[in-house]
Design a protein around this nucleic acid. Structure first.
Lengths: 196, 196
DNA sequence: AGCCTGTGAATGAATAGTCATTCACCAAAG
DNA sequence: CTTTGGTGAATGACTATTCATTCACAGGCT
């Protein structure tokens, strides 16, 4: 059954689950609801996924890989570490904007995942963070960023700032600030703060 | 039953729940486990709380009020907005350090709250954020912080940076950086970034 | 072409287990 | 004897998961 992941139904289910998980939360979501949304029978879901957890995990991996690749590419287009960070911020927030459901899941459900799937290490996410650390290290090597900045701390601070902004975005209905303004502000003062 | 909240058992249950929610997550936690941990019968819990959700909500309100008051006091001791923010960062991270279980719950479960308790607005938390915004506004009035900073964005960025740092703290067992170093770094570059 | 048959995807009703919540009963205190 | 706080086994609702059955189709046979 190597074709499971290529199947159209596999993707229909993932999409349905993304929508409903984001809407009601993982535990609140019934398999039968996902099935209805995807237009398949309850049982069909178990042809494509091992269990409910597996849907959530698959959904991440499917999407995060994509996001990570995309981000890597965008960042690598820029040579200057300062520009790289600006690009990262903007791209991150744009991604959230364009993909609200997925963002909600990452915001809320993934946070839980470390609990209910102790064994599941979210490699992709760690790599995503590492991307930031790498940019910072590069900037330090070039003498653009202060040497006393600890990349392991800074990457989290930068990501955290963006992430908190996204949370606000995702959870509030009316958008008070537009996304590029927010991105500019965040990368703006962050950069000023770490520049040599 | 006006004495419910003063009762010793009430607090024992809250404490037990805090510990177990943090450990396994809200949905994973059985009432019977909380009861066992608190050393009471299952039914007793329903004398002190309406239902499972109510335990979580009470647990927050009980604790957040305390935290908020404490933070307000510490911050108000400082006159200078720069110092206020530094104090805030350090106090926040210390709080996390001293209260790992509660921090985990805020990290993970509170994020969900808007899902599973639609009606529950977390006022206290919003006030906590507003505390940061207020400091920033004050700094702007005094001409210490740049006028083009949007307090509503900056408060989230600052909190987000701290929060992401805490997450790292809470979820990782070995502490790579000590807390005051992290606090100094974060408030450090944040401040540099927003100073006039 | 028409017929038969093996295959496996898909179905959804039935199962099986889990747990929040209740409540009939207890014991201590007054 | 009555009240009160407490108990924990029993209840009942809820749902993830299973599995016997259906169905559509491919391709071999006459």
């Amino acid at each position: 059954m190597g074709k499971r992941k290529n199947s159209e139904k596999y993707h229909r289910i993932i999409e349905a689950a993304t929508k409903i998980f984001a809407d009601k939360g993982f535990y609140q979501t019934k398999i039968s609801e996902i099935a209805r949304e995807a237009g398949v029978a309850d049982g069909t879901i178990y042809i494509y996924f091992e269990n409910k957890d597996d849907i959530l995990i698959s959904l991440f991996e499917e999407r995060m890989k994509e996001v990570l690749d995309n981000m890597r590419e965008q960042v690598s287009k820029e040579g200057d570490p300062v520009k790289k960070l600006e690009t990262f911020a903007l791209a991150h927030l744009r991604l959230v904007e364009q993909n609200k459901s997925m963002a909600e899941i990452i915001q809320v459900e993934l946070r839980q995942s470390s609990k209910f799937m102790k064994e599941y290490k979210n490699e992709q996410f760690l790599e995503y963070l590492e991307l930031i650390a790498e940019i910072i290290r590069q900037g330090q090597r070039k003498g653009i960023f202060r040497k006393d900045i600890i990349p392991g701390v800074a990457k989290r601070a930068f990501f955290g700032a963006l992430d908190e902004m996204s949370r606000f975005w995702v959870l509030s209905s009316r958008k008070q600030y537009d996304i590029s303004t927010a991105a500019r502000q965040i990368s703006g003062y962050f950069l000023t703060g770490i520049k040599a």
